[in-house]
Design a protein around this nucleic acid. Sequence first.
DNA 1: TATTGTTATACTCTATAACTATA
DNA 2: TATAGTTATAGAGTATAACAATA
Lengths: 152, 152
Amino acid sequence: MSAKGSGGIDYGILPGLVGYHVRRAQIAVFAEFNRTMAEHQITPGQFGVLTLIGGNPGLTQSALAKAVGIERSTMVAMIDGLEVRGLVERRDSPKDRRSHALVLSAAGEARLEQLKKLVLRHERQILADLSLEERQTLIGLLSRLTRTMERA
Amino acid sequence: MSAKGSGGIDYGILPGLVGYHVRRAQIAVFAEFNRTMAEHQITPGQFGVLTLIGGNPGLTQSALAKAVGIERSTMVAMIDGLEVRGLVERRDSPKDRRSHALVLSAAGEARLEQLKKLVLRHERQILADLSLEERQTLIGLLSRLTRTMERA
DNA sequence: TATTGTTATACTCTATAACTATA
DNA sequence: TATAGTTATAGAGTATAACAATA
């Protein structure tokens, strides 16, 4: 009930826990993502935000924060960074003068297209050893894991 | 090629990316872990450290840091916290006067046994909707994902 | 020379609370 | 009253660089 790794260390029950493997995979995927995106200096969170703004032009910061699961106060600096880099614009909302309508700039649109290609390359990298069927199985199982917890 | 979620938001290519699902699962699992461990105030990282010390008494801080993938300077505060709480002891190493031999205190041993039971309950929680076979499949796929990246 | 534990320091990501301007 | 964006602040969790003691 306790396995020794390559370093001769006993990892106990850890290797039998799904939570342990999810955490390790997340760290490794994150590191690989950063390697792939190094020249663009884009984090997974920033890519997600650009994708959501690109697909939902006019989105407000609060709606965006809710969609990605962070506080709206946290979103401020995130948008600041993307705006300073000229990728995102805060437009005046025509409906509500309190909120901003977020849109990608022309440069942001172009950049997002480049990033998508890189992300797909990153995915091919991390999934190199899995068949197409196994990738779908993995996504399906992870989705059910997440949904199970979001219900509870 | 772009799916709208329950909030009417277009998530673009995100739901097709394994990286996206790994990240979401990790966040959800972490939150559930903290809920289960709330009364013990133990993080996943601390549980891992206690497990490794418990299974490898006499381990040095540097070896432990390497095993869990953090810097040895970061390990200092981690052990400090567990030592203040009376769970871990820094013994003098008989072989090398520079290093500490880490061991669980009697209280640490007892605590770890309690924590293991809670962690197994946590695992049952998050895996409630998966069959035994699916759990093994998930662990297997995540392991291969991580190993693929650690090789690269 | 190299390694162990340590400190000082900083950076990232996150949250909460309070403010302002609107609604 | 309530909401959108913002600011100030704080807390994890992490890293790097330099140091003393020891190897």
